[in-house]
């Protein structure tokens, strides 16, 4: 019951926020709604029993990436930008194609019902096995044991991104 209410609340908020991100004229407003969406998504993670991801989403996405976004928007704040046409010329085509994509994917989900053996996608999911360890410990174990090489590669990726961002940001190289 609570779970359902929470799910529909967060889902609605996420989708609404997403639509507003795309339609807002002012980039800061877009960013605010993107933050809303990200927080709502974090809420969805909670309904999925992924507490660690909930926190990671807020710390990294909201507290890190979005701060960077807002920072840059403010640095390049142009009043002119507000009076320019916000959508490009391919809008209608792009919109149509996107809706086609949406319809296709929705159909795929809907069709899965008839293909599945026992409609597994639509049944309630497996109850997660309750372990003594919390979600955080389990993810930590996975990250540092099974996925240790991807983890290291990700850290190198971050390092490269860091260097790249610094180089890009430099006034004179």
């Amino acid at each position: 019951m609570t779970n359902e209410i929470l799910f529909y609340f967060f889902a609605g908020l996420a989708v609404l926020g997403g639509v507003l991100v795309v339609t807002m004229r002012n980039a800061v407003h877009s960013a605010v709604f993107l933050i809303t969406t990200l927080l709502a998504t974090a809420g969805l993670y909670l309904t999925l029993n992924a507490e660690f991801l909930f926190v990671v989403q807020i710390i990294l996405y909201v507290g890190g990436i979005m701060v960077l976004f807002v920072f840059v928007i403010m640095l390049v704040n142009l009043d002119v930008a507000l009076h320019q046409v916000q959508f490009n010329r391919q809008t209608w085509v792009a919109g149509l194609l996107s809706f086609a994509l949406l319809a296709e994917l929705l159909a795929a989900v809907a069709l899965a019902r008839s293909y599945g053996e026992e409609n597994w996608l639509f049944a309630a999911p497996h109850v997660p096995t309750v372990t003594a360890e919390g979600n955080t410990e389990q993810i930590g174990r996975l990250l540092f044991q099974n996925y240790v090489i991807p983890f290291e590669i990700a850290s190198i990726l971050l390092l490269v991104a860091l260097v790249g961002a610094v180089v890009m940001g430099k006034k004179r190289i």
Partner: peptide, 25 residues
């Protein structure tokens, strides 16, 4: 909540994102 519900939310967000990428200047 059935997993398919999450898939639908995800789809909607995905499409919104795609529309944004394709249409915004």
């Amino acid at each position: 909540i059935p997993t398919s519900h999450y898939l639908v939310v995800s789809l909607l967000l995905f499409t919104t994102g795609v529309i944004g990428v394709l249409t915004r200047r």
